[in-house]
Simulated assay, not measured.
Amino acid sequence: MQRADAPLHVLSPHASTRRGGAGITGHHSASTIRRYETAGVPTVSPITLWHQLAERLSVDELVMLGDALTRRTNPLSDLDAMVGSLDRLTRHRGIVALREAATLVRPRTDSPRESECRLLLVRAGLPEPEVNGTILDEDGNFVAYGDMVYREYKVLVEYDGGQHRDDEAQFHRDIDRLDLLMALGWRVLRFNRSHLRADAVIVARTREALLQRGWRPHNPPAHRPTAPQFR
């Protein structure tokens, strides 16, 4: 949600008509901007916004935004479209960061903190997990979506946001879900915001769980999505 004191950013196709004034930050673009509509308000498209923010955001932040655009529920874009859009950019400030971020964006992510956890694990040399993979029981019945799934080793890394603590119904579902996963032989690691402040703990515990389940550092990752290819 935007802060009440945050400026409103207004984009014009011509520098001479760029808006300004109290509480307004004006921009102009010489390139053609695809118009989009959000709650009846004209805006730029989600992918265009991703491009524009490359000047202001770090690579990790661009990955989190890209993950959000391709999220599991109600996605605003898809990875192929995002990658394809970069081929059309010329002399764009932030293009290097966008290209790097595009190789790390993973569809089906549910939250920025999940993205943060995934990047942390991969950069520590651990296998890349399957994002929000479907977990079934022996009869093929749905059990859960796992935040970060190491299917070969039956290790599941979960990030618990505030709703898991504050929503009693959600907390109840989490308990039942955990029991089912443990009964099926899954090793479930649960982390929250406090763990991200001491991120070595997340890496150490995940590494230990994977080693206990048979992973070795020289093994190829159990799940490695194909990185986007740029022309």
Rank of each mutant, 00 (worst) to 15 (best):
M1G: 08
R3C: 00
R3V: 00
P7M: 01
V10H: 04
V10M: 12
S12C: 12
A15E: 06
A15T: 04
S16M: 06
S16H: 10
R18E: 01
G21T: 02
G23Q: 06
I24H: 02
I24K: 00
I24T: 08
T25N: 04
H28C: 13
S31A: 13
S31Y: 11
T32I: 09
R34H: 05
R34Y: 04
E37M: 15
A39Y: 05
A39N: 09
G40M: 01
V41K: 15
T43G: 04
V44K: 12
I47D: 13
I47W: 13
L53E: 05
L53D: 00
A54W: 01
R56P: 01
L57C: 11
L57Q: 05
E61A: 12
E61Q: 12
E61D: 12
L62G: 06
M64G: 08
M64E: 07
M64T: 07
M64N: 04
L69R: 11
L69N: 08
R72L: 13
T73W: 11
N74P: 07
P75T: 11
P75S: 11
D80M: 09
G84T: 02
L86I: 10
L86H: 07
L89W: 03
L89I: 03
L89D: 00
R91F: 06
H92W: 14
H92F: 12
H92Y: 08
H92C: 08
I95V: 10
V96Q: 09
V96F: 09
A102I: 04
A102V: 04
T103K: 07
P107S: 11
P107R: 13
R108H: 13
S111N: 10
P112S: 10
R113K: 15
E116I: 00
L120S: 01
L120E: 08
L121T: 04
G125R: 03
L126Q: 07
P127M: 04
P129N: 02
N132V: 07
T134K: 15
I135E: 00
E138C: 03
E138L: 04
V143F: 02
D147Q: 10
D147T: 08
V149R: 14
Y150G: 00
E152W: 08
Y153R: 10
K154R: 15
V155T: 07
V155H: 07
G161D: 09
Q163W: 09
Q163M: 04
E168M: 14
E168V: 11
Q170W: 03
Q170E: 05
Q170R: 15
F171M: 15
F171V: 09
R177A: 05
L178C: 09
D179A: 11
L180T: 06
L181I: 05
L181A: 06
L184I: 01
W186D: 06
L189K: 00
F191Y: 14
F191G: 02
R193V: 11
R193E: 14
S194A: 09
D199L: 08
I202T: 03
I202R: 01
I202C: 02
R207V: 03
R207H: 09
L210I: 03
G214C: 06
R216C: 03
P221H: 07
R224A: 08
A227F: 02
F230P: 02
R231P: 06
R231D: 00
